[in-house]
Amino acid sequence: MSTSPSPLLELSRINKSFGPVQVLRDVDFTVTAGEVTALVGDNGAGKSTLVKCVSGIYSIDSGIVFYDGEPISINGPRDAADRGIEVVYQDLALCDNLDVVQNMFLGRERRTGLVLDEATMEELAAETLAGLSVRTVKSLRQPVSSLSGGQRQTVAIAKAVLWNSNVVILDEPTAALGVAQTGQVLELARRMADNGLAVVLISHNMNDVFAVADRVAALYLGRMAAQVPITEVTHAQVVELITAGRSGDLGLPAAGSGDDYGLNGARG
């Protein structure tokens, strides 16, 4: 699938502080439809904060968010959802006692009059899963409690896709999964991008990033160190961007800004 020239979601010079702690500094970040953009960074680099700013859970202090070229303001989760921005959080937020269809439509049930329209919901859920070529979930009517970790992740992702979403942000989707299930979830992320969605993959795992991402963005202590096509960087360079904020001529300027704790020096 070809890369569309203009980004779907573009963050420009985003700042966010919690009291005296500045978590995000002048962060630029672009997300393009049809691509998987990996967002990497060490613990505390600001990945989660950035995602929460995009999804409307946090308000930004300064900066502009462009959606499809238009500046927008996101004042709450509703605004983000209305734009088709969905986040799949690490803890998935599924109800174990409900089945797959019930979870996928939770809070936005289809109804005819007063009554739930189970048949339509089941069809739409099946359609969504089929569109993502999911074959691991056998019965749509089994409780989520009986699913494996990978299947749960699949259901959570399908739930996000169901709502005509345009941007799907996956927060560490493979952190708790085994090898085979990780493969399934990564394939799913790839397929969503191939279906035209903009996918953001937050990950610690370089193998995942290189397996599936088109573009990688590395956060380093609240600043965007670099956002480059995956083909232009090596494994080692990305690791350097994460740990030191720069790698060769990529990344943040070498001048020590006082908050890099000597990491630059340590890594040469």
Binding site: C95, N97, G107
Partner: peptide
Amino acid sequence: YATGGNHEAARRAG
């Protein structure tokens, strides 16, 4: 049922 099963999930579902 959703509230009893996982009230955080229910809350996030609106």
